[in-house]
Design a protein around this nucleic acid. Structure first.
Lengths: 157, 157
DNA sequence: CGGAAACTGTACTAATATGTCAAGATTAAC
DNA sequence: GTTAATCTTGACATATTAGTACAGTTTCCG
């Protein structure tokens, strides 16, 4: 269970645009420089975010990207969904059927409950964090998150 | 943020062994058949689990695998850690430095707080679910998990 | 206009993950 | 002992993901 490169870098690029909100369109070169990525790769990531309707672009000289909505109205979850898809969905069952046409557990699968539950939990957690929340320092962010109790799930046996 | 094939299939193979606990060593062919995977691939997955010390094997005729510990003493998290590594660790920063030697956010990174927090939450949640919990039906599992409140994180702005 | 700045699209190469294969090693049973 | 069943290992082929390259299009500005 890993973050993909596109999710990690894509989110960082999105935050860079958010950080410059109100200063006019942000150029690819500017974001690339701020993140230490190649302009070509940065262009690709910003393109994905634009196609996902999280950014809008203006072309031509002095062009660039701006957020499609206020930073408070874009959640980390929305960004991740566009950059890498959901943690768990019914497609996991379809794509992990092994050699068979359908997964052997299609009828009844205790793991499916677990993944669905975990996916819901992660989605809920990351939906509550907006891009604007990330425009702070690590210390402040850490403190804010500490105010939230961790999900100490305990299965009732 | 996806489950890797090794995590998904590996966990399923581990559960198959757990399910046959007490019936003597479980063969690769038996697990492969139960999961609809090729014997070769199944062998690879069981190997990883053995190297991670979740299974022990006996070689030769009538050989096979058994759990290294009782099913109640193996958590889903432990299995996932062996099969695919952690969701987030310091290595994410090192491996996502872009073109630079170090990540440009090495000093201060609000996202690092977030990933650490999420990683801790997922670890806590999956550490509380044991292999024996998965030896039930989807309906029962679903009900049990419903008793657990989802982590409805809310960042205090 | 004409040229420079800047995004767009597609194709390509490189790295990683997925899954297969074959030869080797160990044990039970006869 | 010999044989057959069974795990072990490392190398390999394939698929997916990561990242690069470059020619094309749009807009600003003189």
């Amino acid at each position: 269970m890993h973050l993909s490169a596109q999710e990690e870098y894509g989110l960082r690029c999105l935050v860079q645009v958010a950080r410059r909100c109100g200063e006019g369109p942000v150029g690819i070169a500017e974001v690339a420089d701020a993140e230490g990525l190649s302009p070509d790769y940065t262009a690709k990531l910003l393109r994905v975010l634009r196609q996902g309707e999280l950014l809008t672009s203006t072309r031509g000289a002095a062009g660039g990207y701006v957020l499609a909505r206020p930073a408070t109205a874009i959640s980390v979850w929305q960004a991740l969904e566009i950059l890498g898809g959901p943690l768990f969905s019914e497609s996991l069952c379809n794509s992990h059927a092994g050699l068979k046409a359908d997964c052997v557990h299609m009828g009844d699968c205790s793991m499916r409950s677990m993944w669905t539950w975990l996916g819901d939990a992660v989605r809920a957690a990351l939906s509550a964090i907006s891009l604007s929340d990330l425009l702070t320092s690590e210390g402040v962010m850490s403190q804010r998150l500490q105010l939230v109790p961790l999900p100490t799930a305990r299965v009732q046996s």
